[in-house]
């Protein structure tokens, strides 16, 4: 297993080898259509040790962490945790954040709740 795959397993605490390849995660995901690598493919890639492929996937910022995949997975693989762990590996590297403070002002509007900014910052950068 590569060092990266190992780190992903450790951060996520989830085990992609439990996956029976049913695809229910992708079926349950409300944004699977937007993802270049689908949730079930995340589990599959990790089980095969092909974690490098995942680092540049747009799935990392499409995933909403809504846990529909986690709730409905029949094998307790918790794909949402796997995706977040890959995201962590990316944003923890220097200069790899998906969001910078400079971008924020033009994204704001009067109604936007603080919670949204906090959440986005927590997910998109270290």
């Amino acid at each position: 297993m590569s060092e990266l795959t190992e780190r992903i397993m450790e951060i996520s605490g989830a085990d992609p080898r439990k996956c029976m390849k049913c695809g229910k995660c992708t079926a349950a995901c409300p944004v699977a259509g937007e993802m270049d690598i689908k949730p079930h493919q995340f589990a599959s890639c990790l089980a095969k040790g092909q974690s490098d492929l995942l680092l540049s996937s747009n799935t990392l910022h499409k995933c909403l962490s809504c846990f529909a995949c986690v709730e409905r997975c029949p094998r307790d693989v918790r794909p949402g945790r796997l995706i977040d762990a890959v995201r962590q590996c990316v944003v923890r590297a220097r200069g790899q954040a998906f969001l910078t403070p400079e971008e924020i002002p033009e994204l704001l509007d009067d109604e936007l709740p603080q919670q949204l900014l906090v959440s986005a910052f927590r997910r998109y950068r270290r």
Binding site: K62, L64, L116
Partner: peptide
């Protein structure tokens, strides 16, 4: 019990729009 799109609306209002529409 389906997600509204959450914080993704910061950068992709079109996507959250589609999710909310449903």
């Amino acid at each position: 019990n389906e997600c509204c799109g959450g914080y993704v609306s910061l950068g992709d209002k079109e996507l959250t729009g589609r999710m909310c529409d449903r």
